[in-house]
């Protein structure tokens, strides 16, 4: 297969960038999108030109490293990660536009590589159960019904790729944060910190500059793990319940936007 690629090139964070056009030919339809980019880079090396920078690691849809925007869609056309997007998903001869995530909270580092550390900081604010290594209670002392476990798992499988933020017109991280709050707040172990967790994670989202949710639903549309909008409902409910007891100083963006 042959393609024309328009790839975003940007030398450094904060600098201007521009699209550069490349032609690739003889691509196997079974090659993944990233393998196609590997081939391009191999060729650029031969031509002694600067290769295209992009993130990837597991290449099987679980680590959340890959983060392209293909033809305007975070990850690509099929609601799977960029690394699981195959060239057979494209029409032979097509022109394909490849960009980095565009969001002020996830700034470009180079070419297609972005800085997603804001998401780590949201977890740091309370996306955990405060326990340390040591003797723990018998796990069967806290029974969890299988349907609750399923609901928890549906949220816990978030890979933290940030596509939800990139897709949201408001640049919100509600799906990401909602997934973590749903995972932990539904479990018996998560109860003691249920309220403080919701409040601190929401505050951190605000501090990082993530926008609020106005129900576009783009996040769930692009999520490669098919995390449902329900987690945002859960986040809103948890936050409201928590703040009934403890009034926040200023309402967060998720409520004001």
């Amino acid at each position: 297969m042959n393609f024309k690629l328009e790839i975003w090139r940007q030398f450094e964070s904060g600098q201007d960038g521009a699209f550069e056009t490349f032609e690739v030919s003889g691509i196997d339809p079974e090659a993944s999108f990233l393998e196609m980019l590997d081939q391009l880079n191999e060729r650029l090396s031969h031509e002694k030109r600067r290769t295209v920078a992009f993130d990837s690691d597991c290449r099987e849809g679980i680590c959340g490293s890959c983060s392209l925007v293909i033809d305007g869609n975070p990850h690509g056309p099929r609601q799977v990660t960029s690394c699981q997007t195959y060239m057979r998903d494209f029409i032979d001869g097509a022109t394909i536009k490849v960009e980095p995530y565009r969001s002020t909270t996830l700034p470009v580092i180079r070419d297609l590589v972005t800085d997603r550390s804001a998401l780590d900081r949201v977890i740091e604010a309370g996306g955990y159960i405060s326990t340390t290594t040591g003797p723990q209670p018998d796990p069967n002392a806290m029974l969890v019904a299988p349907d609750v476990q399923e609901e928890v798992m549906d949220a816990a499988i978030c890979i933290g790729c940030g596509a939800c933020v990139a897709a949201c017109p408001n640049g919100a991280a509600m799906l990401f944060t909602g997934a973590k709050v749903t995972h932990l707040n539904l479990l018996p172990q998560g109860q003691p910190e249920r309220e403080s967790r919701a409040i601190s994670m929401v505050n951190q989202m605000d501090e990082e500059g993530f926008g609020g949710c106005t129900n576009y639903g783009e996040c769930a549309r692009v999520c490669p793990q098919e995390i449902s909008l329900d987690v945002i409902g859960m986040l809103n409910r948890e936050y409201r319940k928590a703040t009934v007891k403890k009034k926040p100083k200023a309402p967060p963006k998720m409520l004001t936007q």
């Binding site: 003797p135 796990p139 928890v152 798992m153």
Partner: peptide, 11 residues
């Protein structure tokens, strides 16, 4: 035990 205490959702 440790993983369950951290909220790891085993089946």
């Amino acid at each position: 035990d440790q993983a369950v205490a951290q909220g790891v959702p085993f089946n």
